[in-house]
Design a protein around this nucleic acid. Structure first.
Length: 154
DNA sequence: GCCAACGTTGGC
DNA sequence: GCCAACGTTGGC
């Protein structure tokens, strides 16, 4: 079982949107970075743990826990001409972008980015490294454990 | 709005 | 294949 951090802009899709979705499950769409796509396509497995992270917002940080409930399938938005994620080079026969379905485990009290940065045990966490822009990053079991402890202490 | 960092594009 | 220019991300 692996762990991941997935960034979402709450203005687009927040933890509350996930909570309000049917079966509290949503397909993860809009990833247009090959490295992030490859994580989902090649490494994600059903049951993997997800830290749901809010980015580009007044209070960036971890907003909840989720789990992966499907393997990767084509991201429908690439075929939608009206979507800002439309990709003219993608076809049904040869999709370029993939996503998994993600289900809410629980919304948490927001764990702010500043608190993550202040925790020495998370010093090497991928999301906290200078210049990191990847929207999907692996989380080590030790980091996962530390974050869960911080959430239950809050 | 600024800016650091990194990815992508396209001319050669 | 190189690399400069440009675009995007995302915290502040």
């Amino acid at each position: 079982m692996a762990y991941w951090l997935m960034k979402s802009e709450p203005a687009e899709e927040s933890i509350d949107d996930l909570a309000a979705a049917p079966r509290q499950t949503l397909p993860w769409t809009g990833v247009r970075n090959y490295q992030a796509r490859n994580f989902m396509r090649d490494q994600f497995a059903v049951g993997d743990g997800v830290l749901f992270y809010h980015s580009s917002c007044p209070e960036p940080g971890i907003a909840g826990l989720a789990e992966v409930v499907s393997t990767a399938h084509p991201d429908e938005t690439q075929f939608d001409k009206k979507s800002k994620y439309h990709d003219a080079a993608a076809t049904r026969a040869e999709p370029r972008w993939f996503g998994v379905d993600v289900k809410l485990v629980r919304k948490t009290k927001l764990l702010p980015l500043a608190a993550l940065r202040a925790e020495p045990k998370l010093a090497t966490m991928r999301i906290l490294q200078r210049g990191n822009r990847l929207s999907i990053t692996p989380v080590t079991p030790a980091e996962w454990k530390t974050v869960l402890a911080m959430l239950s202490a809050a």
